[in-house]
Amino acid sequence: MRPEQQQKQQKPGIDVAVLVSIGRHPTTGRARRAEQDARGLELALAMEAELPGSRIDVLHAGSQDVDSEAALRSYLGMATGVGMGLESMTLLEQPEGSDAILPLVEHLAATSPQLVITGARAERGEGSGLLPYALAEHLGWPLVNSLASIETVENGVITLLQALPRGQRRRLKVRLPAIISVDEAAPAARQSAFGPARRATFLVAPTTSEADSELAQWHLSPARKRPKRLKIIKAASARDRFKAAASKAEGKGGQVLTDVTPEQGAEAIYKLLKEEGVLR
C-alpha cells in the first residue's frame, strides 16, 4: 500500500475544470446546485485522494443574482477540508439569454485545463444536453458521456469507467485533454456545508457574450407531464420477471466488428444509418 501511495504523491496533479450551472428543484422550482453538475464536482473532489496537487477550477457562465448566488455557493460548500484552491469560483458573467458556449470555449482554450467535467444536461434553460458536445466540437477534444468513475490518470492518459444501460460498465482510456459528462450513474454528491459556502468568493473573468439569437426566437412554455404508458407484464413467474429486468437487450441482427480500420467502421455505421433511415 504505502510505496504505491508515495508513488502517487510524486505524480503531478492535473488541472480540472468543473462546469456548474444553476439547478432547479423539481418540486418547488427553487434554485439549487444542479444534481448532475454536483456529481461532476464530487468526481473531481474524489480525485484529490488519488492525485494530490490537482487543481479544480469551478466555472460558471451565466447571469448572477441573489438566488443563483446561493446555489453557486452551495457547490463550493462541498469543498470542506479539500485543499485544492476551491475557496473561489470563476464566474463568466453574461446577461440572461446569452449563449454560454462561446465564452466557455474561450476560457477553456485560454486556461487549457487537462480535464473538463460537466453535467450531461442543465436543469433550467434549454436543457438540451448539447453543451458537452458543442464544447468538444469547438475545442477538438474527446468527449466521454455518462461517466461512472475516474480510475487512474497516468502520463496524460485517463482511465475511465463509463456507465452503460442495465448497470454495465465500460473501461476507456482517453488521452488528455478531454471532456467528460456526468449523469445519474456517477456517485452522489456530498453534503454542502454552510461555512465554506459562505466564505467562498467569486472571480469574475472577462467574457465576450453574445445573445443567443436562436433561443430568442423560441417560444418557451412549461412542460406538461406526459402520461405514463401502461406496462403490461407478460412474465408469469418471478424468474421470468427477473430475467426481463436483468438480462441484456437482445439485439436483433446487427454485427460485431473487430479488428477493422476506422474507415471500415465508419462505412459500416454509415450503411446502418442509411438502412435505418436516420440519414437520407
Binding site: 460548500g77 462541498m78 470542506t80 477540508g81 456530498r190 453534503q191 454542502s192 456545508a193 454552510f194 461555512g195 465554506p196
Partner: peptide, 13 residues
C-alpha cells in the same frame, strides 16, 4: 460537523 464539514450522517444531508 454540519455547518463546517458537511458531515451529517445517513439521511441527515
Amino acid at each position: 460537523l454540519t455547518l463546517e464539514r458537511g458531515k451529517t450522517p445517513n439521511k441527515g444531508a
